[in-house]
Amino acid sequence: MGLPPYATLGQRIWYYSFRVICGLIFFFLIAPIVVVMPLSFNAQDFFTFTPEMLRLDPAGYSLKHYEDFFTNPQWQLAMKNSLIIAPIATIISVSLGTLAAIGLSQSHVPFKGTIMAILISPMIVPLIISATGMFFFYSSLGNWMEGTLGLDKGFVGYVKVILAHAVLGIPFVIITVTATLVGFDRSLTRAAANMGAGPVTTFFRVQMPLILPGVISGGLFAFITSFDEVVVVLFVGSASQKTLPWQMFIGLREQISPTILAVATILVVISICLLTTVELLRRRSERLRGMSPG
């Protein structure tokens, strides 16, 4: 890939211009995300750089948007809802998804193709269509739960959104866990059984530790799917289930406060942490399976 010493002038020019082009594309990929960060410290209520900011004048910077985020009840409600909905949805999709992935990875599963297609479908169907279908179905489900079961309205609202988000996260769990199970050595479970371990013990003491990286990264995918989801929650939830993305969406559409940028920065930091975790897990999983870490 390096430039050979005998390269002609044309080749040199191409080599460097190609690097520049690639650099520009990387700039295109990263710049929008990076731009948000300094702007979130803007002392003015603008969405752009003020002259004070460009002069690096401390007066041009402030934490007021962050302060607004942590004190404004609207944003706090959204934050609280996101932190309620996403973890519960993740727990549901991970626990059901891991079991099913183990079942799917066994030999001789009847109708494997059809089952797989059904389980993957929430990822395939565009969100707007899932949201439309869920809008019709979940409103009657909600009425039934409120009317027949006599449940509290707010509680039913959370149940609806959590169920919807859990099912959206399932394909990611299935895909990552089945991928991990492909490299799982079956003789280990047989060895455990041979030594007297029951199926439950084998699962928790032998299989689970080995596939844990896959399960966790599937769970992270499911979490981010729910945490980042806005279309379905807009259609299925009501105002009291307003999540962070929903609040951001309203803010962007009606153009209110630059607090959105502060939230965006916080979310970018969270996604960097998640990305690092997934990357570390992937390497650990490959090491465990005896592959060279990429």
């Binding site: 990929l29 990263i30 929008p32 995300i33 731009v35 948000v36 981010i224 945490f227 980042d228 806005v230 962070l244 993305p245 951001m248 969406f249 962007l252 959105i260 940028l261 965006a264 979310l267 970018v268 996604s271 960097i272 998640l274 990305l275 997934v278």
Partner: peptide
């Protein structure tokens, strides 16, 4: 990084 960043963040950017 963009792949993992919230869709709303990228849209607001």
């Amino acid at each position: 990084l963009p792949f993992w960043t919230s869709l709303l963040v990228r849209t607001s950017a």
